[in-house]
Nucleic acid binder design. Structure first.
Lengths: 122, 122, 122, 122
DNA sequence: GTGGTCTAGACCACC
DNA sequence: GTGGTCTAGACCACA
């Protein structure tokens, strides 16, 4: 049985977006993040939703909050590297599961990826 | 600017599910599909939603409706092969865009996929 | 320098209250808890505040939430025993720090506790 | 029924702080206290709040005000000894009530305190 | 009915 | 200005 309506909570979407930006150095280690209110404006969501996303990121050690100042991206570059690796692994797992369900063999998967990487079609 | 709240319409989700089943021969070419009512029961959705999904599939030539009898999967095996190819390509494009955004080089992508295919960790 | 206004967040107070009730078998292992709305009525706070307290307890593994049904106290009796031990240790630490600040020697502390336990004055 | 939001009035917090300092000879018997204004600076609170705390202490006989000079700690060493005893007793009562609520037997309480006093883990 | 999420708006302490 | 907490009220999916 399938479960439709897979609407991922907005705070999780924001978390993942920021994670990606941390992992790809859009936000640099130790950098001061925009304030909750600014991010809420940017993302067009309620400040509480941003607050929750950032609290979760703090719990995961990727962000450190400093009251009366703001939030900093972690300086722990090892943690950032680990985050990056996790994102890559997750994307890869999802992809491979997808194409395995389409009955592609490992060899076919590799061939597909290779040809896609050579021919630079979007 | 990001757009959150990406609830994909249920009829699209059902379309994609059926496409996958056609492409992987869960449904065979020329096979008679379950009725709209039955599919609605199976997927736990409104019959109108199933109806819409099937109409779209018919527009794409993957399903053919025979009034008073029901709906058949297309016998056009070339179209099915093409569908399969499209699904693979789409998944591959999405994946590669994802990891390119994570700043992986083509070589790193290949390495990642290979290692994931060898060590068959879920 | 002292920091006055030590107002502990309500959701933490509720967490600690429920923890104590779990540790002392007011709530039994596996028992179904009152609903968020009921607890909000009982504690005279907003349902969101109760929700937060329970989410934290779930994160600590003391409560398990079952959607459409409610929340259960964990069946993990080892975890409950550990919780009980933690509460005892915390209370003891706080107490001993207090009386050490009052310049009591360990012998005096023991004497005080003993005499308090014999003479059953409240 | 529980009552949350237990913000203890600041003047009470200051009273208790000064009591502790009297009981532990941070302030000596007969010593001249800092002025209300100075204490307000030290504690970062409104002078009225300090005023109220000192008035209460005077009512309890622990402080004596000498107009145009200032406030003195009482010279009554018996009163100070009694104060010290009260603080110890109060802390002890609170602690023992806490652990009794956690269903510890008197023997277990003693064991817990002893072990905590030996292993001096903070 | 249940838990979960989101919004809008408020207040607080800190600086 | 900042982060943090709380309320009131709404909507959703699930059963």
């Amino acid at each position: 049985m399938e479960s439709f309506q897979n609407t991922q909570p907005i705070y999780l979407q924001i978390m993942n977006l920021i994670k990606k930006q941390i992992a790809t150095s859009v936000f640099n280690p130790g950098q001061l993040l925009e304030s909750v209110r600014e991010l809420a404006m940017i993302y067009q969501v309620n400040p509480n939703t941003v607050q929750r996303a950032l609290s979760e990121l703090e719990r995961e050690g990727l962000v450190r909050s400093e009251r009366t100042i703001g939030r900093y991206i972690t300086k722990d570059e090892a943690a950032i590297a680990q985050l990056h690796q996790n994102l890559v692994d997750e994307a890869t797992s999802t992809y491979i599961n997808n194409v395995l369900e389409l009955h592609l063999s490992p060899e076919e998967i590799l061939t597909t990826v290779k040809s896609r990487l050579k021919g630079d079609n979007t």
